[in-house]
């Protein structure tokens, strides 16, 4: 389903935020309302439609474009689309304002997730983070957030916790030390022990799915936690 929405957002030239918002709606809707094999695409698309309306204005595709797509692709009328939207709204009790991981990422951006006293271990030598590292930290966080929405096992975790775990995983990938500190704990309201399970799974999935891109050195870092990958 996430792939379906992701393809639609690509088709409509929308940002990843819309995938995250729609996934949030889908997780809640499909967990309460089983739908048939033939109609899940309609509801998944309607979740994206609601996300576009709540988050808009989009710079690219508009809700009208998506409605046209749904009408053509699924042989629906506009009234059918409205009914699908209303069914979702009813099941979600008109509550469409839950923050996604990307919303938390924005909040954490304001607070900052790397610090002047952070060190990166390069071939055993501690160095300060350069501009490229600072860009990479955010790219990794974004990557881990995208990874988390694809896996059902993370559904029960809070988005704030998953984002905090993504930050820790990002710092781990760049070999930043300390992995977690008091300032990050204060900002995210999570300490390392609370996010560890999610952090650990994110890294495991990363290694399983992208073994060639998995940074060396993480395994030894996790061994320090007594949790080798």
């Amino acid at each position: 389903m996430v792939n379906h929405v992701s393809n639609l957002t690509n088709y409509l030239n929308l940002s990843g935020l819309f995938v995250h918002i729609s996934t949030l709606y889908m997780d809640r809707f499909f967990s309460k309302m089983p739908v048939s094999e033939t109609s899940w695409r309609i509801y998944a698309s309607a979740c994206l439609l609601l996300a576009m309306k709540m988050e808009g204005p989009a710079t690219a595709g508009t809700p009208t474009d998506l409605v046209e797509f749904m009408v053509d692709e699924y042989e629906l009328t506009i009234e059918h689309v409205k009914i699908a939207e209303l069914q979702i709204l009813k099941v979600l009790e008109w509550s469409l304002t839950s923050p996604t991981m990307l919303h938390f990422m924005d909040v954490y951006k304001v607070g900052g997730i790397y610090f002047s006293d952070d060190l990166k271990m390069t071939k055993g030598v501690p160095t300060h983070l350069d501009n490229q590292d600072r860009i990479c930290v955010w790219e990794y966080v974004s990557f881990f957030c995208d990874l988390a929405i694809q896996k059902q096992e993370f559904m029960s975790c809070k988005n704030s916790l998953k984002t905090a775990a993504a930050i820790a995983a990002s710092r781990a990938c760049l070999n930043v030390t300390p992995l977690w500190n008091e300032r990050l704990a204060r900002m995210t309201h999570y300490n390392m022990s609370e996010i560890f399970e999610c952090f650990y799974r994110l890294l495991q999935i990363f290694r399983e799915q992208y073994p060639n891109n998995f940074p060396v050195g993480i395994s030894s870092l996790l061994e320090d936690f007594g949790m080798p990958l």
């Binding site: 309607a46 439609l49 609601l50 309306k53 709540m54 808009g56 508009t62 809700p63 009208t64 409605v67 046209e68 506009i78 689309v81 409205k82 939207e85 209303l86 709204l89 009790e93 008109w94 509550s95 469409l96 304002t97």
Partner: peptide, 18 residues
């Protein structure tokens, strides 16, 4: 007319509901 549920009322209802 061609967007399904009207945007402005969707936002009004969902935000007030929150």
């Amino acid at each position: 007319a061609d967007q399904g549920f009207p945007v402005r009322y969707l936002r009004e209802a969902c935000l007030l509901r929150a």
